[in-house]
Amino acid sequence: MTRFAGKSVIITGSSSGIGRATAVLFAKNGAQVTITGRNAEKLEATKKKLLKVVKTPDSVNVVVANLTDAQGQDQIIQSAVKKFGKIDILINNAGANVVDGTVNTDQSIDLYHKTFQINFQAVVEMVKKTKKYLIESKGEIVNVSSIAAGPQAVSMSPYYAAAKAALNQYTRCVALDLIKQGVRVNSVSPGIIATNFMGAMGVPEQAQKKIVNLFASEKGCIPAGVPGKPEDIAELIVFLSDRKRSFYIVGQSIVADGGTSLISPMESQNLEDVMELGT
């Protein structure tokens, strides 16, 4: 497929999960893909997946860099421009629920800074640094947020939730500004997705599977009855990056969560059972 033929795409956090699935899908559709992350071994695994679907290895660019570091950001951007000559699409996917063993209001200010740095500040800096290239190409930006942004509270991780909420509002503000210059900005808000997201928080793989399966089996967690797959979110990201298919969507945060964010306390309970108890 050549849906994105000649388009240069940067995907942050593409060493696994949603980022990797998005990179593969762009590559399948003919894009020139820059993948980046801190883990060289995992990035190499992503590269191998891309090489199975691309027509030429020259359409894959691998950059091992720290996105929270200004030098790392410059390295990613300049590498993409040097290899492909331009930037058409920026996917700000990298993010993490940074942990240090504390929760709720006991979370430290140091954790606050680290959480906002990767989930919000890095996005702001990448947008500012790629802006001139995206205006020149009349490009697209898709930010990856989370349903943790609200309106439901995530009391255990207030900094992560607040950072994603800030990202949603930033998306709206930047979208209104950049559309005047031909650049579209949107975001996606995934729900519970079967990735290694919890693994990065130190949760063992087996425990991750149990947690995800528990959520999927609970009516009050995922009404669809199944966790999302990275490929589900990748399809949405690619859709929002395709101006022919989504040109009139500007500044929106599209939720993909199997119905999780629709649940109210009443919906999470079987009211027929409750009424029987009352008789």
Rank of each mutant, 00 (worst) to 15 (best):
L43A: 00
A45D: 15
I89K: 08
P57A: 11
I91A: 07
S59T: 14
A65S: 10
K49M: 14
K55C: 02
K83R: 11
E41Y: 03
T34E: 07
N39V: 01
A40N: 08
A45L: 14
V53H: 13
K52A: 15
Q78F: 07
I89G: 10
L43P: 00
I35G: 11
V60P: 01
A40W: 06
L51G: 01
N61H: 13
E41D: 13
L67Y: 06
I87W: 09
V62M: 12
S59Q: 13
K42G: 05
V53L: 11
K48A: 15
I89C: 08
V54G: 05
A65N: 03
S79L: 05
K83A: 11
K49N: 15
V81P: 04
V64T: 15
D69P: 08
P57I: 11
V53I: 13
N61L: 12
Q78R: 15
L90P: 06
L50K: 00
R38I: 09
A70T: 15
E41T: 08
K42L: 14
K86G: 06
L51P: 08
V81Q: 07
T68E: 11
G37N: 05
A70V: 12
K82C: 00
A45H: 14
L43W: 00
A40L: 05
A80L: 06
D74F: 10
V62A: 13
V81G: 13
P57R: 06
Q75T: 13
V81T: 10
G85D: 06
N61F: 08
A40F: 03
A65L: 03
V64C: 10
Q78G: 14
V53F: 12
L43D: 00
V53N: 11
E44C: 03
E41C: 01
T36P: 01
T56I: 04
K82F: 01
L90C: 11
S79D: 07
V81L: 12
I89L: 11
E44Y: 09
K47A: 13
N66P: 07
T34V: 13
K49E: 15
I91S: 04
I35Y: 11
V64H: 06
K82W: 03
I76N: 03
K42P: 01
K83V: 02
E41N: 09
T34R: 04
K86Q: 14
D58K: 15
R38M: 09
D88W: 03
L51H: 10
K47C: 01
L90T: 12
L67N: 10
K86R: 14
K86L: 01
P57E: 09
V53T: 10
V62H: 11
A70H: 10
V81R: 12
L50I: 10
V62F: 12
I77K: 04
N66G: 01
N39C: 00
G37R: 12
K52S: 09
N61E: 12
